[in-house]
């Protein structure tokens, strides 16, 4: 019975994912007939500009949406288990802000110091800077949480990091020359669509590696669910597990933030959507379910943000916030007693 329900859910989500993936490629500000898209992918006769849009623009965007959705929601679930708190997530705990700070120091700080960057260096440097920033915040959060067990302190700290990062970025913006500022502003408006084919060569392998690492950590995550003492006395090397989880977080949240800009609420809200759907706490089911749900929701958000047929595009962050916030409010109101 129970297994059957899960199979049906997984199957439906996979079909939904496929449908939305195709829809994300077909729908957009420029309307391209389905036949043209089909021709572009199969190598048939079609308008070269349609082909360019389909292969060089919409396909990378759809792939990015899937990977970003999977990555952020996967990190969210891991952090909720790790900190044993339903309100943990990469955005809330300041990891996304850390990545943004890293990028802003790279894009604004280096030109201030008189370092000139070529487009190649900029492309890879942005990721590296995001990883460093995310790793810095993650290690501070982990260090504090090892000493202070009160999760409220950690959450407040995360928010403070977020504000501090924003403040530092503002100072940098104020000091920066126009050219550097422009490249930074372009990055902050960064959406799924700003990811180029060249960047996909970094985004795909790194996030896939991070996702595989997360799947390998299913057993430790199930043990951590019972708390550190139980996990430890059941034979878990807590320190190593924390390090591996931090690594996964940095790879996933850092990379996605570097290429798509800070995207909020997906990491926090999607694990709860998966819990509501599957009614499971076992990571063997919940982790793949969360990843799949994340990909589906991110594709949906991307389609909505394109405002099909209008020619306007909204920032992806706006859509994820509008969808995520009601879910989070529902979670807070529904669970006044502590749960994850």
């Amino acid at each position: 019975m129970k297994g059957q329900k899960n199979t049906i859910l997984f199957l439906s989500l996979t079909i939904l994912l496929a449908v939305l993936f195709v829809a994300d490629i077909v729908l957009g500000s420029v309307s391209i007939p389905l036949s043209e898209i089909w021709a572009a992918f199969t190598g048939g006769e079609c308008d070269p500009s349609s082909k360019y849009i389909a292969l060089k623009f919409r396909l990378p965007k759809a792939v990015t949406a899937v990977l970003a959705g999977m990555s952020l929601s996967c990190v969210g679930l891991q952090m909720q288990t790790l900190f044993r708190n339903p309100l943990a997530g990469p955005y809330v705990l300041g990891v996304s802000s850390g990545a943004s700070l890293g990028v802003s120091i790279f894009l604004l700080g280096l030109p201030l110091l008189g370092v000139e960057l070529g487009p190649e260096a900029r492309n890879f440097g942005v990721v590296g800077a995001a990883w460093l920033g995310a790793a810095l915040i993650m290690s501070i959060v982990m260090a504090v949480s090892a000493r202070i067990k009160d999760i409220m302190v950690i959450l407040i700290l995360g928010m403070m990091f977020g504000s501090a990062a924003t403040a530092i970025v503002e100072v940098l913006q104020y000091l920066s020359p126009e050219s550097a500022l422009k490249s930074y502003v372009v990055w902050t408006m960064g959406s799924l669509s700003s990811v180029s084919v060249a960047q996909l060569w970094v985004l795909v392998p790194v996030t896939v590696a991070g996702l595989i690492l997360s799947l390998l950590l299913i057993k430790p995550l199930n043990m951590l669910l019972l708390g550190d003492n139980y996990a430890s006395t059941m034979g878990l090397n807590i320190k190593l597990t924390h390090q591996l989880l931090s690594l996964a977080t940095v790879l996933l949240a850092g990379t996605v933030t570097a290429y798509c800009g800070p995207i909020g609420f997906i990491g926090l809200a999607i694990p709860h959507v998966a819990r509501m759907l599957f009614r499971e706490a076992d990571h063997r089911i919940l982790l793949p379910a969360t990843m799949l749900t994340g990909a589906v929701v991110m594709l949906a958000c991307d389609i909505i943000s394109q405002l099909p047929t209008t020619g306007y595009t909204l920032p992806i962050n706006t859509i994820t916030a509008l969808i995520g916030i009601p879910i989070i409010i529902a979670v807070i109101i529904r669970n006044r007693k502590p749960i994850i």
Binding site: N229, A281, I340
Partner: peptide, 14 residues
């Protein structure tokens, strides 16, 4: 085997 005072109260956990 260790039984600690940590409360395990996780929604949907069987």
């Amino acid at each position: 085997g260790f039984v600690s005072t940590e409360e395990v109260r996780i929604a949907d956990l069987k």
